[in-house]
């Protein structure tokens, strides 16, 4: 069944938006946490929870630069995350094609 191929980690709307947003960046680029939050429209706590889940799966990497008030975190999609999104969209296309 094609639906089984839909990665449950990406299938959650908020995480799908995160992964799709990061996938729009060229390979090797990262997005700041604050800009990502502004684009996605999630609360910081909610966004951190979703980012942690994706990071644990190896779909993205986070990097913290600086310290204290001046610190900022940037988030980038990993090759594994990009491949997972490609597989997810392919599975979704197959599913829709059968309608």
């Amino acid at each position: 069944m094609t639906a089984d191929l839909l990665d449950p980690l990406i299938h959650v709307p908020a995480r799908l938006r995160i992964v799709a947003t990061l996938a729009a960046l060229p390979d090797g680029d990262a997005l700041s946490f604050t800009r990502l939050q502004k684009l996605i429209g999630l609360t910081p706590g909610n966004l951190i929870t979703h980012l942690r889940k994706l990071e644990h799966a190896g779909y993205l990497s986070t990097e913290k630069n600086g310290s204290g008030v001046a610190s900022h975190t940037s988030v980038a999609l990993s090759n594994r995350g990009r491949a997972a999104l490609d597989a997810y969209t392919a599975a979704l296309r197959d599913l829709i094609a059968g309608l």
Binding site: L25, P26, D27, G28, D29, A30, L31, S32, T34, R35, L36, K38, S74, A76
Partner: peptide, 9 residues
């Protein structure tokens, strides 16, 4: 490009 860092910037 606000908030974007890395190779392309």
């Amino acid at each position: 490009r606000a908030g974007v860092s890395g190779r392309s910037s």
